[in-house]
Amino acid sequence: MATHLITGAGSGIGAAVARRLHARGDDLLLLARDAGRAKELGADFPGARTLVGDLAAPDRLSWALAQQSLPDRLDSLLHIAGIVDLGTIAELTPKVWQSQLQVNLVAPAELTRLLLPQLRISRGQVIFVNSGAGLNAHAEWGAYAASKHGLKALADSLRHEEKPNGVRVTSVYPGRTASPMQARVHQQEGKEYDPSLWMDPESVATTIITALDLPRDAQIDNLTVRPGR
């Protein structure tokens, strides 16, 4: 039975991935921002274990995880959580920049650092769910795209560094996906949200699990998935 630690399992792509892995009997550790959210995730995924750690405060993750029981080995670390706040460079404040960089980049880096010993033992895999914005930046997406471009650099560096240890590293770049985050984006853009126009989170989950289940004689470094409509 494989053991996976997932961030962002509460909704969207993260919830879709967690449901698939839970249904096949894998062992899940679900990171929650606080005890209340951990209780909700525990109810949604019976038998899964929860960890409490706030990605918005990455400098506190080391302390938070030290207070909790971690597995001796970890087969995968799935970074799926993220936040987005749109705005032009002319109007974005340091607080908006910092919040997105903390959650989308610094926290994944810190969480990976803390869990590398368990991943090395199992010769496991780190999957970063990035974004199309991690490859191309557009107007009003500056801060979010910067955090996702940074996430690409993190993944690329980690891949080279951990190859001798047998740890695989994959970046997945989904286009627009029907999710609560997408609804928020449309609200910020002032557009009507029609989820039928965008990818189902289950479709993105399929790509992530494909990379996860690839035989050990191969690896997917980068995987881009776009709406087919």
Rank of each mutant, 00 (worst) to 15 (best):
S76A: 14
Y144P: 08
W141L: 02
H138F: 15
I80E: 04
L115A: 03
R123S: 09
N104F: 02
A107T: 05
I80W: 05
I121G: 15
V126K: 02
V84Q: 13
R123N: 05
L86H: 01
I80Q: 01
L111K: 08
Q102L: 14
D72R: 15
N136P: 07
W141N: 01
G134M: 03
N130V: 02
L77V: 05
E91C: 12
Q98W: 11
L111M: 08
W141K: 04
Q118E: 09
A90E: 15
G142C: 01
T93R: 13
P94W: 09
F128K: 03
L115Y: 03
I127S: 02
L119C: 06
P108K: 10
L77Q: 08
A107Y: 02
H79Y: 06
A139C: 07
I83G: 04
Q100Y: 02
V96L: 13
W97R: 09
W97P: 03
S131A: 01
G132K: 06
S147H: 05
P117M: 07
L77F: 03
V106A: 13
D85L: 09
A90V: 11
R73V: 14
P94Q: 06
L115E: 03
A145M: 04
P94I: 09
F128N: 12
E110N: 11
E110M: 14
L92T: 15
I89M: 14
L92I: 12
L101S: 08
I127F: 03
H79I: 06
G124K: 06
A146S: 13
L105A: 13
Q118H: 05
T112P: 04
K95S: 15
A109T: 13
S122F: 01
E140L: 10
A81K: 06
G82Q: 01
L114I: 00
R123M: 06
L101G: 02
W141R: 09
L116M: 08
L86W: 00
A137R: 11
D85W: 06
S76H: 09
I83Q: 09
D75H: 12
R113C: 10
L115P: 02
H138A: 15
N130G: 00
V106C: 07
D75Y: 03
G132Q: 11
L105V: 11
L86D: 01
V84M: 12
A133T: 12
L119W: 01
V96M: 11
R73N: 13
L116G: 05
I80D: 04
R113Q: 14
Y144L: 11
